[in-house]
Design a protein around this nucleic acid. Structure first.
Lengths: 214, 214
DNA sequence: TCCGGAACAGAGCGGTTCATTCTGTTGGTG
DNA sequence: CACCAACAGAATGAACCGCTCTGTTCCGGA
């Protein structure tokens, strides 16, 4: 048989690895505060199958956020290196980010766990990538000069906050609203933007765990 | 003295009425799931002062959402009846909605309480108002033809999901991103929008209380 | 065929978090 | 000066949830 035989504890365990990650992704994107039992149910496994793989809920969340971050950087890198027509490359990137839902998985999860050092590291690299991307598309003349890194973050995040009906419908609605943004983002821009862009410091402040009250 | 004397149980009670509502607004806009004690603390009153006025947390939330809805309709009515230049009237409306944070107070709170019949009623009227508004601005030629009611809702909601730094900074950031949207919303529009607008039914589905899982 | 143990299902434990109730306390008012 | 509306905040009881623990299944080797 070309595909893995369905039996064997090893095989089932490998399958469960994937099932659990997928379930966790779906569940926590939908509700970052969901109980871990929800993940188990969705994955069709018992709770102990989860704890066999991740020492704690926080570890699982870290894993998810890390994957999301990595995915985002992958997309950004593709955008920077893309050979395609610049505006199309940019549009493709933005759409991919929305479809992959990386804002939900990184930003919305931020604060529910303490980030590991290498996540900070990765975040740094991500920033550098973002800046390179901005520079590239601006100098290509397809992105208006007055948008900054933070603007793009805000756009993808706010678009990703849209939830309506099932997952597919949500995706469609998000892409529709994203399109509005894209048309406004395109150079030269109809009118100057008010206020100042969100800074990296401001963005970073959200990664501080819980209790910021008062 | 022209203003109310500071003493008198009646006077204090009246003052507390307002304090509590303001505190509740701030607290629940920031976190719809906040404990009721948080509201009491912010208002600088005891818990019993809250329960003296509202039989339960849910009643308080209903009150807040009702007020928000009413406020929204007020703004919409102004926009429809405004004598100002059409595009400015529309822009003013959108900005006012974002500043007043009505999406947070209605939509985000939806699901945390069971809506009263008159809220449905009000929602109906709100819809009618929205439609009138769309019609007016489209026929004035300032709003692109392919945006629908649901689009405006999505725009204000997604923009209102932005949170960054303190309240003031958040407002500025939201208005900035809103501006992008506005420039894209303006007729005739650079390119057709993909997908179909979110429908009223879809919007309404979110008002169904809790447990929609699975 | 039979046994050991990896992998697992899910009940149960212990801690925490609220909404709401209850026990006083205070200060205007008749 | 006694009474009570109005209040502060502790106490209560019911979830909820992360994690541990018990018991089960069934693959893989002898």
């Amino acid at each position: 048989m070309t595909d893995k035989p369905l039996s064997g504890r090893k095989a089932q365990a490998a399958r469960n690895d994937k099932l659990i990650l997928e379930a966790a992704h779906e569940v926590f994107v939908n509700d970052p505060e969901a109980p871990i039992a929800e993940v188990a149910k969705r994955a069709g496994v018992g709770i102990s199958a989860l704890y066999r793989r991740y020492p704690s809920k926080e570890d699982l969340l870290r894993k998810l956020a890390g994957d999301g971050l990595r995915r985002y950087m992958e997309l950004a890198r593709e955008a920077v290196e893309s050979e395609a027509e610049p505006w199309e490359a940019f549009r493709t990137f933005m759409r991919a980010v929305v479809v992959a839902d990386t804002p939900s998985i990184t930003v919305r999860l931020a604060g529910t766990f303490t980030p590991s050092p290498d996540m900070f590291q990765a975040a740094m690299e991500g920033d550098a990538l973002n800046k390179a991307m901005l520079a590239r598309f601006k100098s290509a003349g397809v992105l208006r000069e007055d948008v900054e890194n933070g603007d793009l973050q805000m756009v993808t995040e706010s678009v990703s906050s849209i939830t309506i009906g099932d997952a597919e419908r949500t995706r469609e609605a998000r892409l529709r609203i994203l399109e509005l943004h894209l048309q406004a983002l395109r150079a030269p821009g109809a009118a100057p933007l008010p206020g100042s862009p969100v800074t990296d410091e401001e963005m970073g402040a959200r990664w501080i765990p819980k209790g910021v009250k008062e």
